[in-house]
């Protein structure tokens, strides 16, 4: 008898939480998609290699390398700063604290299968950086086109 009541309580608490979570997420204004799509950037937020090269030549964009520390140390795109995809939130905020919100930012990882560039980009957009792009081809496409990484 008691057991049945405990499981009923558990189900009720879970049901109430899920219902409230759904309602809150829909109406609170800071809701997020219930299922996260790892290619969350719209096409106009993704850069092709020529666009990336143009941006690097213009020297206005801030490049962010979202790969691991080992990969970054072994070589990265010109002038890229390092924010690993699994960085703690305060680490990201700290790295970005002097960057103006409207500066063009380009995040990259190793290739299109690496989710970290998109994740960092989404986080930065959420933090109200207005011009955040992802170079989804990443270092693989960069090297594949005959460019080299900088140590």
């Amino acid at each position: 008898m008691l057991k049945r009541s405990v499981s009923a309580e558990i189900l009720l608490v879970l049901f109430l939480s899920i219902l409230t979570g759904l309602i809150y997420n829909t109406f609170s204004g800071n809701g997020i998609p219930i299922f996260y799509h790892s290619l969350g950037s719209t096409p106009d937020q993704q850069l092709t290699l020529p666009q990336l090269q143009q941006a690097i030549a213009d020297k206005r964009a801030l490049l962010i390398d979202a790969r691991t520390s080992e990969e970054y140390t072994a070589g990265h795109l010109p002038d890229a700063i390092h924010i690993p995809g699994f960085a703690a939130i305060d680490q990201i905020m700290n790295a970005m604290k002097d960057i103006s919100k409207d500066r063009q930012i380009i995040v990259y990882c190793s290739n299109v299968d690496c989710p970290f560039a998109v994740r960092i980009a989404e986080f930065l957009r959420f933090q109200e950086f207005t011009s955040v792009y992802v170079f989804s081809g990443g270092t693989d496409e960069w090297i594949g086109a005959g460019n080299s990484l900088i140590k």
């Binding site: 939480s17 899920i18 979570g21 759904l22 997420n25 809701g31 997020i32 998609p33 219930i34 299922f35 996260y36 799509h37 790892s38 989710p115 994740r119």
Partner: peptide, 11 residues
């Protein structure tokens, strides 16, 4: 899996 991380974060 990434696709469920938001789901967890919501509920």
């Amino acid at each position: 899996p990434s696709v469920f991380t938001n789901t967890i974060a919501i509920f």
